[in-house]
Design a protein around this nucleic acid. Structure first.
Length: 555
DNA sequence: GTAGGGTTAG
């Protein structure tokens, strides 16, 4: 009787994440000498795990005289909860070694979840294989976890296959699949499935909306958000709000972002860390750095994302020194940087040519914080070295780094060689690229121009042949700005704008002003067989966006 | 004792 009372209350603490109440119950249990009685050790373990007190959860586990499958499953959940999926996976082997226990469907579902959070589909498939051969192969919850894993790893097709095998499809299964479709940009599938979904809750709407935001369908995400507001009674929580703020950020829609900010204030959700982090990022991406800084300053409990958002935002607005001193402040504040922080910092160095500082940060990342540099970090360092003219070092890094450099990486170096007019390295890099069999049209243009500049006409014609056999279409570049509550999009070579004549006039004025001050456009990187006036016209496209920005500031 | 949504880069 007494025991089931404790089990019941401990479970409530686990659900509510109420650590202090849980500890009080634990104290009473010890006083009564019941700490090893019946299901209580497992209940205590579960409570500490779900409250995020990993140390105490593990102590419970270690002190158990006898561990059953539930003890192992709860430990797995605790590790998942604490964001330690690798530890979860190592349990798979330990269960058998220590206690001769085979994973059941509870354990399998948790293992799959660990694979999902690591984004490791290879391991996920192994667990899947184990599952279908186990006596639990028919369990719907484990299948649902597989749907989630395949969705998170970017394989919605596999997720669909498992989904179809679920006998009783609950809201969780539907949501997991819809999320997979939305995140991978399969808008049609996501919407179709969502409309067929029998019971929708706030999480289902949220999964669809945030998935669409992540795959760049901000407008659709917004209209679904409005639909939810209109047609349902679901409230707005910090999850959905931060997704909507991110949508404004990605589309650089400042006015809309401000309105969502007001919504956050009205709902008293602006003090939520996820919401304020999203706001810092939104204002920075919308070029209102002052507003971003003000949100940042007013955020009391700043975490690594808050700091990283302001550092990246500051760096992207050219204030590299300021970004670096924010990093110093962050360390004084005792916040540990993560891999994104370092990307922002190296980016900052890259844009003002702080080569040795950038190198130092790159090394500090692994030495001081144990973060293994990713391909992106190497690319960022490469960018720093090549922009600043350290071409030899950049080439060396490209060859020795622990990742296989792709076409874009080599092309970036080549482009830098041309900017620094280093023909010798340029030709060497170009030859290497040519061997790789380049596929990107802009790489081919770059190659053609490199060889043309070095008067290597045979290779020019070789590149031209490569161009002619492929479907040579380059996505046109475009710029987008918000002007009087409307978004204006301009494509390169676009001449359909109703204000074309006024715009071109202003553009010409700006161009003349630039030339007067000694800024002559460098058109040498444009395709070589264009006439000079055609090159100038192309250049006009490049300043088009700058011109529009200017126009938007006119009264 | 198991499964679904959120912020930072590219």
């Amino acid at each position: 009787m007494l025991c089931s009372h404790f089990v019941h209350h401990l479970r409530a603490c686990a659900k509510l994440s109420s650590q202090s109440l849980g500890q009080k119950l634990h104290a009473q249990i010890i006083k009564l000498g019941l700490q090893q009685y019946g299901p209580l050790p497992n209940s205590l373990l579960e409570m500490y795990g779900k409250c995020g007190v990993m140390g105490d959860a593990l102590q419970m586990f270690d002190e158990m005289p006898q561990r059953d499958i539930v003890s192992w499953a709860s430990t797995l959940t605790a590790y998942n909860h604490a964001g330690l999926p690798r530890r979860s996976l190592s349990i798979f082997a330990e269960m058998w070694e220590h206690d001769r226990l085979q994973p059941d469907h509870f354990v399998i579902a948790s293992l799959v979840k660990a694979c999902a959070s690591l984004g490791d589909v290879r391991l996920g498939k192994q667990v899947h294989a184990y599952f279908v051969r186990s006596p639990f192969y028919d369990d719907d919850v484990a299948k649902s976890s597989l749907v989630d894993m395949y969705s998170k790893c970017g394989f919605p097709h596999h997720a669909r296959t498992v989904f179809n095998l679920i006998r009783v499809k609950g809201t969780v299964s539907w949501t997991a699949l819809i999320s997979g479709y939305a995140q991978t940009g399969r808008k049609g599938d996501a919407l179709e499935l969502f409309s067929r979904m029998p019971v929708k809750n706030l999480l289902s709407w949220s999964a669809l909306i945030s998935g669409l935001v992540q795959s760049g369908h901000g407008i659709d995400a917004f209209s679904i958000f409005m639909k939810m507001r209109k047609e349902t009674d679901h409230g707005i929580d910090p999850f959905i709000l931060s997704a909507i703020i991110a949508a404004c950020a990605n589309m650089a829609m400042l006015e809309l972002g401000k309105q969502v900010h007001c919504l956050a204030l009205a709902l008293c959700l602006d003090s939520n860390l996820f919401v304020s982090n999203a706001l810092v990022d939104m204002y920075a991406k919308c070029s209102d750095l002052l507003a971003a800084k003000s949100i940042f300053t007013n955020t009391r409990e700043r975490d690594v994302v808050t700091w990283t958002s302001i550092i990246v935002g500051t760096a992207q607005h050219g204030q590299a020194k300021e970004a670096l001193s924010l990093y110093d402040e962050m360390m004084l504040d005792g916040v540990k940087p993560n891999e994104v922080t370092f990307l922002g910092l190296i980016y900052a160095c890259s844009h003002v040519g702080l080569v040795s500082k950038g190198r130092h940060l790159f090394n500090s990342m692994s030495k001081d914080y144990g973060i293994r540099p990713s391909l992106e970090h190497y690319t960022s360092l490469l960018d720093l070295l090549s922009r600043s003219g350290h071409l030899g070092e950049a080439e060396e890094l490209l060859k020795t780094m622990p990742y296989e450099p792709d076409e874009a990486a080599w092309a970036a170096l080549l482009s830098a060689c041309r900017q620094h007019k280093n023909t010798k390295v340029a030709v060497r890099v170009a030859d290497h690229l040519l061997c790789l069999g380049p596929k990107d049209p802009s790489t081919l243009i770059l190659l053609s121009n490199t060889y043309a500049a070095a008067s290597m006409w045979e290779r020019v014609s070789k590149v031209r042949k490569l161009m002619s056999v492929m479907d040579f279409r380059k996505e046109p570049g475009c710029s987008c700005i918000e002007l009087a509550k409307e978004s204006q999009v301009f494509y390169a070579g676009d001449s359909s704008h109703p204000m074309k004549d006024q715009l071109l006039g202003l553009l010409k004025e700006l161009d003349e002003e630039m030339r007067k001050r000694g800024y002559v456009p460098d058109t040498s990187y444009v395709l070589h067989d264009l006439e000079q006036h055609e090159k100038d016209l192309l250049f006009m496209d490049i300043v088009w966006a700058a011109c529009m920005l200017h126009a938007s500031k006119l009264p």
